[in-house]
Simulated scan of single mutants.
Amino acid sequence: MVAENRIVVKVGSSLLVNEEHLTPSYAFIHGLLGDIAALRQEGKEVVLTSSGSVALGLGLLDLDPAEAGVQDKQAAAAVGQPYLLNVYKQVATEYGFDIAQVLITAEDLENRRRFLNTRNTITRLLERGILPIVNENDTVTTEEIRVGDNDRLAAKVGQMLMASKLLILTSIDGLYDRNPEEEGAQFVEKVHDVAEYLEVTKSTSSLGSGGMMTKMQAANMAQNAGCATLIAKGEIDSPIIAVLNGERRYTECVAEKDPASSWAVWLTDRLNMAGSITVRNNPARDIRSGEIGVRAQDVASIQGDFGKGDVLHIFDEDGLEVARGLTNFGSQEALILALNQDKTPKELLGYKASDVIINQKNLILLEERHLNWDQPVDDVLQVDEVSLD
C-alpha cells in the first residue's frame, strides 16, 4: 500500500554544484533543507536522493569533467562524498535535524535480499527521525555495473518505500514535447504514457549523468508502484514546497491507479539486464496466456553470463519481450539442459532438479504499462547451432 506521507526528492548535480567552480551551491542547499525541515514538521517522511559527489570531487582533484575517465570519477567520488555530506550535515543542523548517508550499488537494488535489507535500513532511519541521503556508491562501481543515473535510483527508492510522490528537481521546469529551445515547443503538464516522449528526451547536462529521458524512465518505474512523479525546476526559494503546493509549474507523470505488488514491481523494473532467453513462438503464446513457465525444451537462444536467481528478460522469436522472471539455473546449466532434452537434469547436472528454467510463479508477464527492452544481439548462443563436443 502506498504511504501517502512519504516523499522521495531527487536533486541533480547541476543544482547542487556550481558548474564553473565545482563548489557547493550553498544557497540552493539551504532552500532545499529548509523545505525538508518544514515538511518534516507537517509529519511527512522525506528521503533525499542526491547527486553531486563526483562533481565536487573533480573540483577538489582539479580534473576537467569532460575529460575524466572511470577511475578519475571513482577517485572523485571518494573525496567528494564526505565533502558533500559535510555540507548537508552543517545545514541540516541549523534546521534541527540529522542526516544519514546511504550508498547503494545496482546490485543492492537488483538482488532481492539486499534490496530488502536496504529498505529496512532506510525505514529504520525514517522511524528515528533521520533524513536518509541516498547516492550511488560511485567509488566502487564501473560503467558496466552501475545504476548510471540518480533519476532511476530515486525511482527504485520510491518503489522500495512505497512513496506517494517522487519529486525530481532539475535545471528546467519540466517536460516539453520537443527540445524546449525549438520554436513552438509545448510544455507538457501531465503524462500518462511516458513511452510517447522517450524519443524527444535524449540529452544530458554537462555535470549530470542523466537527462530528461532517464527522468521518463524513472517516472515509468514510479508509476508502476503507484507513485506520482513531479518534474520541476529547482529554484533557490522554496524548491520543494512551491511545487507541492502548485505555486510553480511542473510536469506530473500520473501514478497507476491499480499498482502491481511490491514483488512484481521489483521483478519487472530492472536497472540492468542480467541476461535473456529467447523462447520459440508456440511456447511464447502459452507463456503469455499464463499456462506455463520457461522450460528447457522451449529455449531457442540464451544471452549473457547470468547466475541462479538472476532476473532474466524473456523474448519470443520475433524479438518481442514477453515476461521477466527469476531463473533456477545459471547460463551454462540452462544451455546444457536446452541442448540435451533427451536426458534428465540429474544425468546432466549431477543433482536432482526440474527442467523448468523459470517457474510460472516466478514469472511476471509484461503489460502495456511497462517499457520494453530491446532484444540483445551480442553474445547470443543459439541452441540449434551450439555443440558441446
Rank of each mutant, 00 (worst) to 15 (best):
G210E: 01
G210Y: 00
G210I: 03
G210S: 08
G211R: 08
G211D: 09
M212L: 13
M212I: 02
M212C: 01
M212N: 04
M213N: 09
M213H: 12
M213S: 06
M213E: 15
T214Y: 09
T214P: 07
K215E: 05
K215Q: 08
M216C: 14
Q217F: 05
Q217D: 07
A218K: 09
A218N: 11
A218E: 14
A218F: 10
A218P: 13
A218V: 10
A219N: 08
N220E: 09
M221G: 00
A222D: 06
A222K: 06
A222E: 05
Q223W: 04
Q223I: 02
Q223P: 05
Q223Y: 01
Q223E: 05
N224T: 09
N224Y: 03
N224R: 14
N224W: 02
A225I: 05
A225P: 10
A225T: 09
A225L: 12
G226S: 13
G226C: 13
G226L: 10
C227N: 02
C227Q: 01
C227W: 03
A228P: 06
A228G: 14
A228D: 14
T229Q: 10
T229A: 15
T229C: 15
T229W: 06
T229P: 07
T229F: 07
L230R: 10
L230D: 04
L230P: 04
I231M: 14
I231Y: 01
I231W: 01
A232G: 07
A232E: 10
A232I: 06
A232R: 04
A232F: 02
K233A: 12
K233H: 14
K233M: 12
K233L: 15
K233S: 11
G234V: 09
G234A: 12
G234C: 10
E235L: 14
E235W: 09
E235K: 12
I236C: 01
I236D: 07
I236M: 03
I236F: 01
I236S: 04
I236A: 10
D237Q: 08
S238K: 12
S238F: 02
P239K: 02
P239D: 02
I240A: 13
I240S: 06
I240K: 11
I240W: 07
I241D: 10
I241E: 13
I241Y: 05
A242R: 13
A242F: 01
A242E: 12
A242C: 04
A242P: 00
V243E: 08
V243A: 11
V243L: 12
V243F: 03
L244G: 11
L244F: 09
N245Q: 15
N245L: 07
G246Q: 02
G246P: 03
G246K: 01
G246V: 05
R248V: 08
R248E: 06
Y250E: 06
Y250D: 04
Y250T: 03
Y250M: 08
Y250L: 03
T251N: 06
T251P: 10
T251I: 07
T251E: 06
E252Y: 01
E252L: 01
E252I: 05
C253D: 02
C253Y: 05
V254M: 15
V254K: 11
A255P: 06
A255S: 13
A255Y: 01
E256G: 00
K257M: 14
K257C: 08
K257I: 11
D258A: 10
D258L: 11
D258G: 00
